[in-house]
Amino acid sequence: MSKILIAEDEVLMLKALEFKLKKEGYEVEVASDGRQAMEKVKSNTYDLVLTDIMMPFVGGMEILSYIKNDAIKKHTPVLLISAVGLEHVVLEGFSLGADDFIYKPFNLNELSVRIKRYIKQNVFH
């Protein structure tokens, strides 16, 4: 079973994402702020990380850059969730190695299809 980490500071959103992905049959761990997320990322390995960009204490970008600079974890797909489609944010995200951007508002079913695809791709690494 694939393991996914969701980091999102809006509790309500976190719950929806958690329920959705559990329903799809993934093993899900959640973090409601950047610090928690960072601790989890450091001590575990995940098959995919879904993180909001703007979170208290530690932003999604820092989590992304940690994963992508880690020798073992760097193949973990990282999907960034953003309410802000600012050009420089998107560019920064991709330059740091983000696999995809999800803009709020988004379609839940579409998200789960995307996640399925990234996890499948990653099996070959």
């Binding site: 809006e10 309500l12 959103m13 929806a16 709020k104 508002p105 988004f106 379609n107 839940l108 079913n109 579409e110």
Partner: peptide, 13 residues
């Protein structure tokens, strides 16, 4: 809560 979800999700949701 309904408003928050409505703001963040599109489509059938």
């Amino acid at each position: 809560k309904i408003l928050t979800y409505h703001k963040n999700f599109t489509g059938k949701t």
